[in-house]
Design a protein around this nucleic acid. Structure first.
Lengths: 334, 334
DNA sequence: CTGAAAGCGCTTACAG
DNA sequence: CTGAAAGCGCTTACAG
């Protein structure tokens, strides 16, 4: 069993001072080339690594950033994390992960802890409960403490921070228009996130694209049983001939209910939903979906955060909109 | 904008020494109740939080654990992370996430960094490439450095560490027996992870349950196109009447190929696969699956790690096997 | 009951 | 070119 060697121990072995060793390892011009070489050689031999905690204390940086994820079971967030992690790796930052489970209390705890200076910056998507309650004090408190914060995905908030997301309204406006252009009349929308900013925007986009108020068909509920009921009503009573789904849950449920009720996709029903790439194509039939490029969202969020941390951002806050793509699969086989 | 207050500043405001403040905040019996009260009051007022980095340096603990995840897009690992995070929260530990993307090089980098003492312990699932190359030096090196390591999920390795996983061999042995008991003769296996320990065990379990060598039908490839081809051969040429799938990829592909080729599930083909709970039931038809309780795997792994870190584990290394459950849905509608 | 001192492992301005 | 000293923010054994 080996154990970590410290600067002090290296110094003793080399018969020089700790300062000399430290400087040598940092290629300081103050130190003679010969000494530098001696030091580096021994350091390599012992596989010396500076204690990151000590370095952090000195620099009053932690070298870590905190990521708050509402729900990691959601493939979207898992992908975002993947992008964040890749970027962090590049920048030599550590990613500390916190899962709020869409809970306000848990989010408060996390933010509270983050406020104590554990991290150099925070990437967060605001939890569902937080949005429902409209309680953002803890977040403003964190901002007050001058901790750089970047909001990702759920960005429909008035806060003095950088943001990265997609244009939810436009996405649904465009998707609705596309369906209309194909001659579809009764276009419904299914959602389990209608009380969240993102959901509201998507609904608005859809609504804006409708020709008249009579064309508005919605199945909205965060509870499975109730969403199912409303969806069935749309499918069987209203007999919509296309369905826009705002999230994983509603997309999967729509696809499943069509199957259960012998509604043929795409013949009787077109669907455009939100799914991850590696699921959509495997469904039977495959479901057309809007790719949000979650990985890219993560990468961009890290970019903004790192710039902000390093003071490279301008005074005013950035809002980055990532382009999305409607991927046509069997469920919109025109 | 507020800024963090330090012990020193508190001490000055209170006209006492830094030591007194520190002790008071820790409820030391050395300090008079009156002083304790005064100190705590001011600390609360200023929302004082000890700088975690300084505390860590003092205690030579980092208060963090590292989690190496091969692939976060895999819902299984996302769930494991969720369990880990919940447990970490309980224990006041920070979780630093590293994604190896199944790459040996990346895994080496991560392990290397971890070896420098960033974390108090490591939870890891060994990457695919690492297993294929059989190169475990970096892991042994980390163990040599006396960093507590717990292996999760991918545990078929001879290493002096704690492990948490499932009994892959038994799961597939049992699943095969169940299908046989229902009178199914031609039971095939589909896998994209046959070169990994976990995959090998699953295949062995299936094989052990077969009555004769002639009953062995396998579609195995890590490449999509090739797996598809082999699966089609099993379905169309060999006409297997049941399929065991070892992983997400093969399960989804089997279900999809059945659909494409008008093979009715469950009438013509039974399927038992590996899927996450929130997908299996939404498929059309829904697919029976083996629930590994990934969340529980994460919780248990953290348990073992924390015990090991705190020196509460016995000399010999623990191997915890989590019970799994075969969930019957439409694809095995007996 | 309170405080001065040492120290965790590093970095860096300063002196020589 | 090298080293002693101060300091990052804390904790704790020791002295008073």
């Amino acid at each position: 069993m080996k154990s970590k060697i410290t600067l002090k121990e290296l110094a003793k072995l080399l018969n020089v001072s700790v300062s000399t060793v430290s400087k040598a390892l940092h290629d300081s011009p103050e130190i003679s080339p010969k000494t530098v070489e001696r030091v580096k050689e021994l350091a390599a031999l012992h596989n010396y690594r500076p204690n990151p905690v000590a370095v952090n204390l000195k620099s009053s940086k932690s070298g870590t950033i905190g990521v708050i994820i509402p729900n990691i079971s959601n493939a979207f967030f898992a992908e975002v994390l993947s992008g964040i992690e890749a970027q962090a790796q590049r920048d030599g930052l550590q990613v500390i992960t916190y899962i709020s489970n869409e809970s306000l209390d848990r989010e408060k705890q996390i933010v509270d802890m983050l406020t104590s200076g554990f991290v150099d910056g925070v990437l967060m998507a605001i939890s569902e409960e937080t949005q429902r309650q409209g309680e953002y004090d803890h977040i403003f408190n964190m901002i007050d403490y001058n901790i750089p914060v970047v909001l990702y995905d759920r960005i429909d908030f008035e806060m003095p921070v950088d943001k990265v997301g997609v244009d939810d309204k436009k996405i649904f406006y465009d998707a609705t228009k596309i369906l209309q252009a194909k001659g579809l009349k009764k276009i419904g929308i299914a959602t389990s996130i209608h009380h969240m900013g993102v959901g509201k925007l998507r609904i608005t986009g859809y609504k804006d694209a409708l020709k008249s108020k009579e064309d508005f068909f919605i199945a909205n509920s965060a509870r499975k049983a109730s969403l199912k009921e409303k969806l069935l009503s749309l499918l069987l009573d209203k007999k919509v001939d296309a369905l826009l789904c705002t999230d994983f849950e509603s997309t999967m449920m729509a696809s499943r209910l069509a199957y259960e009720n012998n509604i043929r996709i795409p013949r009787d029903l077109k669907i455009i939903g939100f799914l991850s790439e590696n699921i959509a194509g495997y469904l039977s039939p495959s479901i057309s979906y809007i790719d949000q490029f979650p990985n890219k969202i993560g990468v961009k969020a890290m970019d903004l955060l790192v710039k902000r941390i390093n003071g490279l951002s301008s005074e005013k806050y950035n809002q980055e909109i990532i382009d999305t793509k409607l991927v046509h699969l069997e469920s919109t086989d025109f």
